[in-house]
Design a protein around this nucleic acid. Structure first.
Lengths: 338, 338
DNA sequence: AACGTTCGGGTGAACGTTCGCCTAACCAAC
DNA sequence: GTTGGTTAGGCGAACGTTCACCCGAACGTT
């Protein structure tokens, strides 16, 4: 367990009171150069480092940011987590904060977890992700007036600090790109209507289709889970009709669905990128290794994590953050599937 | 902002001294049933929750477990992180601990980071991952006698608590499976010799080959980075000769290399699973969606995270852990590539 | 010679807990 | 009526910081 070097030991070593050592270390002392040097030497000799728990106790701050994420289902992967965590970690460390990850729970227990972290003084703020309409965490934190930043948007009438990625713009880019490649019959594999993220992305699809003067056919909008299996089935339906009738391009709201679509198209004997174009969303790391490599949309995750923490730190310090609502632009990654 | 319910306020509310409240809450009091009820009611009415920072300060413990992981390169993915973190989180929470993730740095700075977390009293122990031969963290923590558990093994002469996955056994399973499918000419795409994990896995390859009475040909052992590109090039070399000379099966030490091999084989016009069998390692989530789905080896990550924390918690409490070195068995996932 | 002013540093208290020790009151037994 | 044992709960201290305030000495000014 070894030695805990405290202020008092440094003080004894330097022959001053321990409070004086504290002052010197915090730079707010009127001390002679000699004693300052003596103190610094003692600090160095003993390897003193201030105990953060005591500091936090004194400051009535934990300097911790709570974060929880929904664990991915077994055959999915959260390829974003690593990047998002790393960028938050880095930004937080630079501001003297640390991250406190905690297990994700559903329903009422979820808000209980947030409340408990606040009431036990463990965290000074939260970054919340996977937000959706009517997110109970947002209502709770707003009412408590507790600092938080959401990665994602929720109900339009709610006003809270957030960072999000412009999914509509992402799909716009995808559709515009397809149009530039002379596609006219474009279908979408989308998510259920209760998904805020899905609706945002789909809105971009509609807008770009309208702007391009293309017809939006209801039967070419497939809504379902963001899984491989749904993507496969949806694409099989979409591509089932004759080559003059079926869509020539499909955009999916995530890579997993797109990969399902890839399989369906391949099973129908279609050449992808030739007979049918397919575009995903996410740039999952494996997507580049598919046959053919998947054209997809990449989100600036690193930037998002950074912004979340930057805003949150300002809030936790009681400052007005420079920006309150940040919308980051994704980027189309052109490979061979479209 | 509003939560400052302390013991004192509860005490005033209940008409007792605050220390008595503390005693009641910690169950070590001699108190009459009535005052106990009064206190509990006050606790409940005010929504009192003990301040953890103060508790930790008093206990001279942070109840935190430090954890850091090497961030993956842009086009790779750490599909393990989510599972590993989640399982550690869960196990830690059950024991009253939390995780403190911190940014990964290389070289001397790395040990500095560990030292700083110890000296500032932020953590009571570490889980370290991505360990290799001569890991400076292990030397440092052993010398400091600071509680830690390694996920992975290091130099054989070092004795420290660890959890690892039996990579040798994983490759054994792969080779045995190939042998049972009548393969006789089996090649391996491996990692550089300075990789402890790689050598462990490769050892299993050798053992199974020997046990099966198969010849190990040096030119059929390709060593290089665990990347798609190296896997592709290595497989291109291995499969370059005539069909009677080249290996009929390739095992790779991770899925990324295996996918590279898939591409190379396909480019040579070989049918995978037919002309050549390919087996990966990791069960990366996308692997199941490849053409053909990749046969691979799955590691019990959830279990590993759980075990790490279980052992560490015992160490941090000063107990002798029930087990000190845990070796978990991976599992062959049979799909269509072999 | 009396009076500010700065410099150099000490002192006590507080943050919210927990823990060991003390004590007042009650009761029973001698 | 003294002793002794229990019961119920109070009290002071401590964990390692920081912060507001205090104080003596040296110096210069009127």
């Amino acid at each position: 367990m070894s030695q805990k070097v405290t202020l008092k030991q440094v003080a004894i070593h330097a022959g001053v009171s321990y409070q004086t050592v504290s002052k010197v270390l915090n730079g707010q002392a009127q001390v002679s150069k000699e004693t300052r040097d003596r103190i610094m030497k003692a600090v160095h000799d003993l390897g003193y480092r201030p105990n953060q728990i005591a500091r936090n106790m004194r400051a009535k701050r934990s300097h911790m940011i709570g974060y929880s994420w929904v664990p991915t289902s077994p055959n999915q992967v959260n390829h974003i987590l690593d990047q998002f965590l790393s960028s938050m970690l880095q930004e937080a460390a630079a501001a003297g904060y640390h991250l406190l990850p905690f297990p994700f729970r559903e329903g009422q227990a979820q808000v209980d977890d947030y409340r408990e972290l606040i009431n036990t003084g463990r965290v000074d703020g939260f970054v919340i992700s996977s937000v959706n309409y009517n997110d109970p965490r947002i209502a709770f934190l707003l009412e408590r007036k507790f600092p938080f930043v959401a990665f994602g948007r929720s109900n339009p009438e709610l006003d809270f600090p957030n960072v999000d990625i412009d999914g509509a713009n992402g799909l716009c880019q995808a559709v515009e790109y397809l149009i530039s490649r002379h596609h006219r019959r474009i279908a979408a594999i989308a998510w259920p209507e209760d998904s805020r993220v899905g609706n945002d992305r789909l809105r971009g699809f509609f807008e770009a289709m309208k702007a391009g003067g293309l017809e939006i056919r209801q039967e070419w909008i497939e809504r379902g889970e963001g899984t491989f299996e749904f993507g496969r089935q949806a694409a099989a339906r979409l591509l089932g009709s004759s080559s003059s009738e079926r869509p020539t391009a499909i955009v999916a709201l995530n890579d997993t669905q797109a990969i399902g679509a890839l399989h369906a198209a391949r099973q129908l004997g279609l050449e992808i990128g030739e007979d049918v174009a397919i575009i995903g969303f996410d740039d999952a790391p494996m997507s580049q290794y598919l046959f053919p490599p998947l054209t997809t949309i990449r989100q600036p995750i690193h930037e998002a994590g950074r912004e979340c923490v930057e805003i949150l730190v300002a809030l936790m310090k009681g400052n007005q953050p420079l920006k309150r609502n940040v919308l980051l632009q994704p980027e189309l990654i052109r490979r061979n599937s479209a």
